[in-house]
């Protein structure tokens, strides 16, 4: 676009570039107004509320007062001189949720990356019926999260579940396990479902990276008698590493905010409750708007760091100028 025909530029009263910039402003305005209204404003309000004492009675009539940092952390001197700490940052329930979120994110993304890589390698090979396999792999991705949670909830059912039946028949377990109810297995159940549902997405992103590796590279390496193991480490992996990095951070962003799967598959389980879930419960179920907003604001801050990391590490090509 750098070279507009000179004739056009001369004909226009104001410069063409100016005219286009003005049009661009009006094209962008509706979207920006909309985003400010539905995203920026509510975000600022949520952060504001995290410094208030808003509760179910006061949130909608504005009768709440400022609370400063009290929702985050507050030192209250007792009569005997000792100090009682209160607030989200000293709440063991919150730290349990943080720990669950971290645990879930690291484990699910690690498993999904590896399984995604395995599936992508298969899909990248040429064999008869590849289209069919790719279609099959897409099925878990197409199923809504709530539906997958219910489907797996049924399969993992303690009394009638098919998973317990399989494991019993294989003599891997002696008694049926209440997967979603037991605190020590609830996280495993959540991981199984999340990995099942999200590996296809990971595989597709990695496959896109794999397809950029020229096929004759493998052929050449084979003719030279280089061991395929070496080819993997020296050729394939370095070439797909950028694709994997971007996919990993992207998934991490998604995993850190997980809500629906955990809320539906393992309701009220201390072993799986995450930052999003505990914040939701405070806001929607307990009417503790101030506390819930403080928690959601902390989560926002954490994810903001990862978004910056994503844009930086992924070297996201923002303006489309210059190659990736």
């Amino acid at each position: 676009m750098s070279s507009h025909p000179a004739a056009v530029q001369a004909r226009a009263g104001i410069s063409l570039q100016q005219q286009r910039a003005r049009a661009a402003f009006w094209f962008l305005a509706p979207m920006l107004v909309m985003l400010a209204f539905v995203a920026a404003w509510p975000l600022l309000r949520s952060i504001t509320l995290s410094f208030s004492n808003a509760s179910a009675d006061t949130i909608f009539n504005g009768n709440w007062d400022w609370a400063g940092w009290k929702n985050y952390v507050e030192a209250r001197p007792r009569a005997d001189g000792s100090i009682r700490w209160r607030g989200v940052l000293v709440d063991p329930k919150w730290w349990n949720a943080v720990w669950n979120t971290v645990r879930f994110s690291v484990m699910s993304v690690a498993l999904e990356t590896i399984l995604g890589l395995l599936v992508a390698l298969v899909l990248n090979a040429e064999f008869r019926g590849r289209a069919l396999v790719r279609a099959a792999v897409l099925v878990p991705w197409a199923i809504p999260t709530i539906v997958s949670a219910k489907m797996w909830g049924w399969m993992l059912n303690d009394q009638y579940g098919i998973i317990n039946d399989m494991l019993l028949q294989l003599h891997l377990i002696a008694q049926p396990i209440a997967w979603t109810a037991r605190p020590d297995t609830a996280m495993i159940a959540v991981l199984i479902v999340d990995v099942w549902k999200t590996t296809p997405f990971m595989a597709l992103l990695i496959l896109a990276g794999l397809q950029m590796v020229p096929r004759d590279m493998y052929e050449a390496a084979r003719l030279d008698g280089i061991h395929p193991m070496r080819v993997f480490w020296r050729v394939t992996l370095p070439l797909v590493r950028p694709a994997i990095m971007v996919a990993v951070i992207f998934r991490l962003l998604d995993a850190l905010r997980i809500f629906d799967l955990i809320y539906v598959l393992t309701p009220r389980s201390e072993g799986t409750i995450t930052m999003s879930v505990i914040s939701f419960q405070n806001i929607r179920e307990f009417g503790k708007y101030a506390e819930g907003s403080a928690q959601s604001s902390i989560l926002f801050l954490i994810i903001a760091v990862f978004v910056v990391l994503y844009i930086w590490v992924g070297k996201v090509n923002l303006t489309g100028e210059g190659g990736r």
């Binding site: 509510p42 975000l43 999003s276 939701f280 989560l299 926002f300 996201v316």
Partner: peptide, 17 residues
């Protein structure tokens, strides 16, 4: 791009209001 990666929960109470 950053907005599309937002945690939805971060706007929940403000949006509720």
């Amino acid at each position: 791009l950053a907005v599309s990666m937002f945690p939805q929960i971060a706007v929940l109470s403000g949006l509720y209001e």
